[in-house]
């Protein structure tokens, strides 16, 4: 995913003279080609994220389109007030890229786990929030972002994520994508790096005779509430995300249902608990510990059906 990210930036640098890329001293083995080709469009702000976001706002106030990059918690939680006041209040075209979605940074520990970013970014006025499932979705979202004049948060994975699509999907910001559709027994609404898990869970359920749908809800804000409500009226609904149970995709879907007074036959949110990770482990191990493997998700869904 990060490779696609930098490839896209190289293309934009030629096409858009106003492009600027800012990093908080991160992106080893990602940014090198960009730094070499476009040094005047690249700022390494050092390990100083508050200044990085303030500076990005200043660049955007002067007509630049800015991509500001760091590891998820350092791109969101650390400079939150700069995002709120400097970027969102001025409603500026700054694209905040948080890498290492959810528990991607595994053994590096809870300081590096990005588990509250969607909740925080959703709460920022003017901010749109995206979590692409694979490199194809990321490329489409980045393309769309170059035409947006408002703030955008993009949560990306680390590297080597499996692809969900085999070719670029017809993606529109704010419209969910149906990535799997075999029937109406259930629907899993997922985002980011969990869409692949949702597909695997759906495959397991298919073997058990349960035919359902998987939605890649790559845009968490503004949420595609029309799609959520139409599914909720017809079938059991589940949400799946690698984010705290508070404030993420599941919360957004639940809010939509509650506001519309629509009650699906079954509704459950699969997410991380409201807690820091205690057990040390790699990404897959931590997913297993938190019940976010395809098998665990499929088992819980069967129980509910």
């Amino acid at each position: 995913m990060r490779k696609t990210f930098v490839e896209k930036l190289l293309l934009y640098a030629k096409k858009y003279p106003s492009l600027m890329v800012v990093t908080g001293d991160l992106g080893y083995s990602v940014f090198e080609p960009f730094m070499q080709k476009f040094p005047e469009k690249f700022i390494n702000a050092g390990i100083a994220e508050q200044n990085m976001m303030g500076m990005s706002a200043g660049l955007a106030l002067s007509g630049k389109i800015v991509f500001a990059y760091s590891i998820t918690p350092f791109a969101t939680v650390r400079p939150l007030e700069q995002i709120r006041v400097d970027i969102c209040y001025h409603n500026l075209p700054v694209r905040i890229i948080g890498t290492g979605a959810g528990l991607s940074y595994g053994t590096l520990g809870p300081t590096h786990h990005g588990t509250e970013d969607l909740a925080l970014m959703r709460a920022m006025p003017n901010m749109a929030v995206c979590a692409p499932a694979d490199k194809y979705e990321l490329a489409k979202i980045m393309d769309a972002s170059m035409k947006m004049k408002t703030p955008l948060y993009i949560r990306i994975g680390r590297s080597q994520e499996p692809d969900v699509h085999s070719f670029p999907p017809p993606l529109k910001i704010g419209k969910g994508l149906e990535v799997y559709s075999k029937g109406g027994d259930f629907a899993i609404i997922s985002c980011g790096n969990m869409v692949h898990t949702a597909l695997q869970a759906a495959a397991i359920l298919f073997k058990e005779g349960k035919k359902g749908k998987v939605i890649s809800m790559h845009t968490i804000k503004p949420l595609d509430s029309a799609l959520v409500l139409s599914l909720a009226k017809k079938m059991p609904l589940f949400t799946l995300e690698e984010h705290s149970i508070i404030g993420g995709l599941g919360s957004a879907v639940a809010e939509t249902l509650a506001d519309a007074g629509v009650c699906p036959p079954v509704f459950e949110r699969f997410a991380l608990p409201d807690a820091f990770q205690k057990a040390v482990g790699k990404h897959e191990f931590l997913r297993m510990k938190n019940g976010l493997t395809p098998e665990a998700v499929a088992k819980k869904i069967i129980k509910k059906l």
Partner: peptide, 30 residues
């Protein structure tokens, strides 16, 4: 200070320590 409320205001401020990073970005941009 809130930008957009009056002609001539360049940036919102109130929470302290925000102006210098924004100004730095504007200085680097032009």
């Amino acid at each position: 200070v809130t930008s957009g409320s009056m002609k001539g205001i360049e940036a919102t401020a109130g929470s302290l320590g925000h102006g210098l990073p924004i100004g730095l970005g504007m200085a680097l941009a032009n």
